[in-house]
Design a binder for these strands. Structure first.
Lengths: 187, 187
DNA sequence: GTTAGCATGTAAGGAGTTACATGATTTT
DNA sequence: AAAATCATGTAACTCCTTACATGCTAAC
């Protein structure tokens, strides 16, 4: 229950929806993370191996089109979530600690909010909100401080950085409000 | 002239402004990167050592307040840019390739734009612009694609991601326009 | 007198990438 | 028949963090 969780979470979360083989999983993973960080096979396959060894997922070689039953055909390996894996996933989705709202983990956690309990969702959103608020105030302070001593480009960089943080802050606040509303009306 | 450049660049760039010791350097580095990624000493000191060995910076032990001339006092080590280091920095600031406009490197490169040639600045901004445009169109495509098949939270995550990208895109376009204007008027 | 912040470092290891190696299938 | 893309994997390596180890100085 330690380690890099966020990675495992992403894999298990995707496999929950449907069994997949590595190549396809990688594409979904990249899309999930936001079209940016395309994770590499050198990372993915060992991770899948480890999850299989831990019993969280099961490997099944599938010969999609039932061609000649020869072993020459490099079979695709389809991974599916086991019962044990489903429980582990549930456990991971309970976590409402810092890992869930810090930069590295938040996106993935948010993507699986549909499978996350209301209370947990709210705690994560609140955690992220306060994290962003803290960052915003730090940036404001440093901007007010530097104002004169710092060159124009660095200033502009920080100004734009602050803008981005405040933007996400407003987004989160909107989400919190929406969560509260659906909670009150019962859906 | 290979390796992780961006790190070296940040250190050399800061030392160009004034000599600093490690502890202070780390704070500036963190501020430069945008109050987020506070780089660790386990990273910084070895990097400084390597730069010193390469001759790009020089170490001088300074006993700030001239107390008793005993060796017992753990001296702060002040690092300054050497002539060789200044040349290396100049060289690094010439680079207008992908490293300069990708996510990892762009911020630092931009922070030192005051010491970067106009032509190079424009190439870097243009590179970043096209990188962001590409990302934006990918995201739009994936959003249009998914629309129905995907759950609301993932959709919202992607929508917000796109918003962030378009925001930075507008920012960059503004900067490009500003560069062109100051270039034409000669200042 | 003890906590907090200044200051420098090392050893071990985590998390991931790149480059390589292989081969099947689909499209042009 | 060549090129692109699907598909799986390994070994070496890079970059960086954590945890540890040490000691000084200022504030409360």
């Amino acid at each position: 229950m330690k380690k890099s969780a966020v990675f495992d979470l992403a894999i298990l979360g995707l496999l929950q929806e449907s069994p997949l083989h590595g190549y396809e999983l990688r594409k979904r993973l990249s899309a999930l993370m936001g079209a940016f960080r395309a994770i590499s096979y050198g990372s993915l396959y060992p991770a899948l191996r480890a999850l299989a060894e831990a019993g969280y997922i099961s490997e099944t070689g599938d010969k999609t089109a039932p061609g000649p039953a020869l072993s020459s055909k490099r079979a695709r390996i389809t991974y599916s979530l086991t019962k044990l894996g489903a429980n582990y996933l549930k456990e991971l989705l309970q976590d409402s600690g810092p890992d869930a709202w810090e930069d590295e983990g938040f996106g993935v956690r948010f993507a699986f909010f549909a499978h996350t309990e209301e209370v947990v969702r709210q705690r994560i959103l609140e955690g992220r909100r306060s994290r962003l608020a803290e960052r915003s105030s730090q940036l404001k302070k440093s901007l007010a401080n530097a104002r004169d001593r710092i060159d124009q480009y660095t200033l502009e960089l920080h100004r734009h950085g602050l803008e981005g943080v405040e933007n996400e802050l407003r987004w989160i606040e909107g989400l919190i409000a929406a969560e509260n509303k659906t909670q009150r009306t019962g859906s």
